[in-house]
Design a protein around this nucleic acid. Sequence first.
DNA 1: GTCTATAAGAGGATAGAC
DNA 2: GTCTATCCTCTTATAGAC
Lengths: 198, 198
Amino acid sequence: MMDLENSTNEKIRYVAFRLFLEKGYEATNIRDICREVGIKPSSLYFYYRSKQELFFSLYDEIWDEKVQYLENIPVLKQNLSPDVKLCLLFTKTMEYCSQNIIKQKFLLRYHLFPPEELISMIRDKFRFWTNRENNIASKIVEECLDKKILDRYKSAADYLREYVRFVNAHLTEMIISNIKMSDVKIHNLWLRFWNYIF
Amino acid sequence: MMDLENSTNEKIRYVAFRLFLEKGYEATNIRDICREVGIKPSSLYFYYRSKQELFFSLYDEIWDEKVQYLENIPVLKQNLSPDVKLCLLFTKTMEYCSQNIIKQKFLLRYHLFPPEELISMIRDKFRFWTNRENNIASKIVEECLDKKILDRYKSAADYLREYVRFVNAHLTEMIISNIKMSDVKIHNLWLRFWNYIF
DNA sequence: GTCTATAAGAGGATAGAC
DNA sequence: GTCTATCCTCTTATAGAC
């Protein structure tokens, strides 16, 4: 989506993403998109049946790219201790988001303030994608409990909730301040969290 | 604004605030507001010259209420040590926001994602109001430096920046999670921050 | 695939009666 | 103060030619 191929469709996706992010769904109109792409509005309807379809095509692509990246981190396929795995997952998550801040800002925008017209579909899709994303951490947390690396005093669900809360807090801060985090800072955050969890 | 007087104007402000918060400025139209209020669209123009004027009337009122509250906290008028004052300011700020989450969410929405039509005016107003708000903490921080309660290693501006960052991070978290903070939790946050600052 | 032309409706705002 | 009636513009989307 972000690499500008010469095809009309890629141009549409590129421009639409930028306008949906900056102006929002409701304030972005087909005419504006088409003017920037250099086509007439009717041509856009050759690629997408509606403004909604265009929006969700982008929305799903952004989530899919993120979740697929996190599901296929090479080091996590290796045989490592689960506490190391969880640290790596956090590190890789924050690195990915650091390098894709505007895509994360897009997701945050439509999670916090979904257009009325799209509200129920966004909620469903959000649940689907966050479930898939949380499953990755969930498995590792359970492994930590099995191997008694984490205390049985809290349940896996409790630990997961704390992990997700922790990730989201720093993700949000990064998006709003629009400042990438250094690898050192990310690692320091993790150490503080891990010590706090114990 | 939030107390439903019987006057038409109060009803307009009440309904408009809710719709501007939930649906956003662009997606909220005069017709929807008036339908809920029970008047015809032309009647609204007796009270406000435009949709913009109605919006900024609400926007400024919310900021004004918040800043005036923080500028006039009774205990801060007393003769206390500046470190105690800063702790009290933080506590009162978080308490106020806790009790007015939806108003803070309104401010966050239009700070993060201002409608294109209002973007420059919102930016100016935001600067004006945050300057006034930050001045309150600024004076206390300077007093801390004067009395050598805070180290001269960092400047007042540096300390202020950290304080503002700290407040905003927890404010944002509260707004997004939509959960009020208990007095105990607020105080614990402060202790961690104060120890970290030293 | 891209165009012209246009339908069909919703939006902000005003004029002027009562 | 509130209404009816209306203006004008902008919007999504479609029909059909090339």
